[in-house]
Design a protein around this nucleic acid. Sequence first.
RNA 1: GGAGAGGUGGCUGAGUGGUCGAAAGCGCUCCCCUGCUAAGGGAGUAAGGGUUAAAAGCCCUUCGAGGGUUCGAAUCCCUCCUUCUCCGCCA
Length: 425
Amino acid sequence: MLDAKLLRTNLDAVTQNLARRGFTLDSAGLDALESERKTLQLKVEELRNQRKTRSKSIGQAKAKGEDIAPLRAEVETLGDELKETENRYEENQANLRAIMLSLPNLLQDTVPDGENEDDNVEVRRVGDVPTFDFKPLDHVEIGEKLNTLDFEAAVKLTGSRFVVLKGSLARLHRALSQLMLDVHTEQHGYTEAYVPYIVNDKTLLGTGQLPKFEEDLFKLHHDQDFYLIPTAEVPLTNLVAHSIVEADQLPLKFTAHTPCFRSEAGSYGRDIRGMIRQHQFDKVEMVQIVRPEDSVSALEELTGHAEAILRILELPYRVMALCAGDVGASAARTYDLEVWLPAQNTYREISSCSNCEGFQARRMGARWRNPETGKPEPLHTLNGSGLAVGRAMVAVLENGQQADGSVRLPAALWPYMAGIKVLRG
RNA sequence: GGAGAGGUGGCUGAGUGGUCGAAAGCGCUCCCCUGCUAAGGGAGUAAGGGUUAAAAGCCCUUCGAGGGUUCGAAUCCCUCCUUCUCCGCCA
C-alpha cells in the first residue's frame, strides 16, 4: 500500500512512477473520491461531536434531576442524520480502500525501463558454464536413469504438476534444504523459524498476495478464509504485522524452509515437463525487516546471501535487475538470480530478491519507533529465495551429470549425503 | 468435539449505562533531592485519522473483531476469533 498522504499531495508523481510499470492510475477518479472523502469525513466528525456533547449534557441534566425529555428528542434526529452520512462515508472509504489495495508499489529510480522479462538487465555473471562431450540430458531423463524421479506416481496420487522423489533424490532434496538453512543461520545471521503453511486472508493481504492475486493461491474449504502459503515470505514477513519494533531490535532476519503451493493459473502452457513449475515445491526463504535508510544496502546483502548458496553448490548463474514492467506489485526493486541449466541451454530463475520498502509494512501495520522522531513509522521489508530447493536440485543434476548417467555432487553436499559423492543408477 | 472462565494502554490489573481514553501499580523518560550506592519527591508517558504549507491547537476513532439495543456502551444483547481449565480424541 502506498502512503495515502503521498497520494493526496503528489498524485502526479505517483501516476508517472506507476506508468513505468505499465500501470494506469485513474488520477481524476481518485481525486474525486478523495475530495468526497474530505467532505464526508468532516461532516461525520462534526455530527459525532454534536451527539457526544449533547448526550453528555443529558447525563448532566439527569444527574441534577432535571427533565431530560426535550433534550432527548433533540438528539434523536441528530442520530438519523449521522447514520445516513456515516453510510455514505463508509461507502466512500470502501471504494478508496479497494483502490489503495490494488495499487502496486512505487519503483526505485534505479529500476531499468522495460516492459517484460526480455528487458531485464544482466548485472553480473558468475561461474563457468560447463561443457559436455556428450549431449547433456535434462533432469527428467537423469532422474529416470537414477530411477528416483516419478511423475506418474504423482499423477496417480494427485494430478499433474506434482512429483514423487525416491531414494537418493529424496535424500538430495533434503540435503539441499539442510545446507541452505545451515548457511543462512550459521554464516548469514538469520534466525530459523518454523511457521504455519496455512494462513488467513489478512496475512495474505499484508504481504500483497490478496486481494489481487487470489487465483494464484490454493484456498481451503474451511469456515474461515484459509490458504496454503505460496511462499514463506508470507508468514515470515507477517511476524511483525501489527507491531511496533524498537529500533535496537533491527534488523530482524528470518529464514524458514517450507513447502510452497501455487496454482499457477496463468501459466498452463509453460514448463509442462519436469520439476521447474510445480503446484508444490520447497523453498528456503530469507526475510529481513530493516530501518528504512538501510533497505537499499540490505537488498544487496540479501541477494549476496542467495548467491552464496549458488557458489557453494558450484552452480553458474547470473544476476538480473528486473525492469519496470517485470517487478512484482509489492516490490520497489528486484534482483532475480538465474541458474544455468545445460539441457535448456539457458539461465532459469532460481531466486527472486526484493526490497518492498514500506509497501507491505503499511498493509501489515508493521512499524518501528524512530528514535529521531520518537514516533512509530513504517519499517522496510525485504525477501528473497535462498533458494528454491526443487530448482536447485534440477541445476545440481544437470550441471553435474556425466556421460555414464551418473551425477557428480558438489563437495559441500557430501556431509549431508552420508558421504555419497556421486549419484549412480 | 463437549462444559466452564477470561480477552482493558509497553506489562500487571480496577471499572458504576453518562464528565472513562479509561483507577492503581510496574516499566520507561525528564526534573528535584541525596557527596558513591540504595532510597525518596515531582512531572510526563497509547495508537490511528482529520483540519494546517507545517506546527500548535481543536476534532474524530480505538477497551479481541463484527453487528445490535440506547439520546449515550469498556459496561447490556447476538455472532465470530482467541486464551486458559476440565473431559473426550489424537501425533
